[in-house]
């Protein structure tokens, strides 16, 4: 029981990760795949941020009267990851738009059919 309580955050993270992975693999629509990828990404954010939290601590802004702070290092890493994530997202969506121009569709099955036909 205590193991369940102390590892609940990991369970949430893993559920989000699995959901994102499932959307990426199972859905043929390229934009839906990008949504799945961003869910996968947020689960990784949680994976980093959650261990840095200390119960009873505050945000890592040093001020008199506070002794316990959450770990600032994962916050820094994830700030970078969010920005890089939106860059990859923009690039992926641009590719999807380009595929739509070339094939007239963003469904994976129809693209493969068209490739097989030509």
């Amino acid at each position: 029981m205590s193991a369940l309580a102390s590892h609940f955050s990991y369970a949430v993270t893993i559920f989000l990760l699995v959901a994102g992975l499932f959307i990426i693999i199972a859905r043929g629509n390229l934009i839906k795949k990008m949504v799945g990828l961003s869910i996968f990404q947020t689960s990784v954010f949680l994976l980093y941020i959650v261990p840095g939290k200390l119960v009873g601590g505050t945000a890592p802004i040093v001020a008199p009267g506070f002794q316990v702070y959450s770990n600032p290092l994962p916050h820094v890493l994830i700030l970078t990851a969010i920005v890089v994530g939106v860059a990859t997202l923009a690039l992926g969506l641009a590719l999807a738009v380009r595929v739509h121009e070339a094939y007239g569709t963003i469904e994976e099955d129809e693209i493969l059919e068209r490739d097989a036909a030509s």
């Binding site: 954010f45 939290k53 505050t58 890592p60 700030l79 969010i82």
Partner: peptide, 25 residues
């Protein structure tokens, strides 16, 4: 989880810019 800077970025980038990019696509 005390990650205020990350939360601000996530709200601005994840909910703002990403949504705009998706809608554009």
């Amino acid at each position: 989880l005390d990650a205020v800077d990350v939360a601000m970025t996530e709200a601005a980038v994840g909910a703002g810019i990403s949504t705009v990019l998706f809608l554009g696509a």
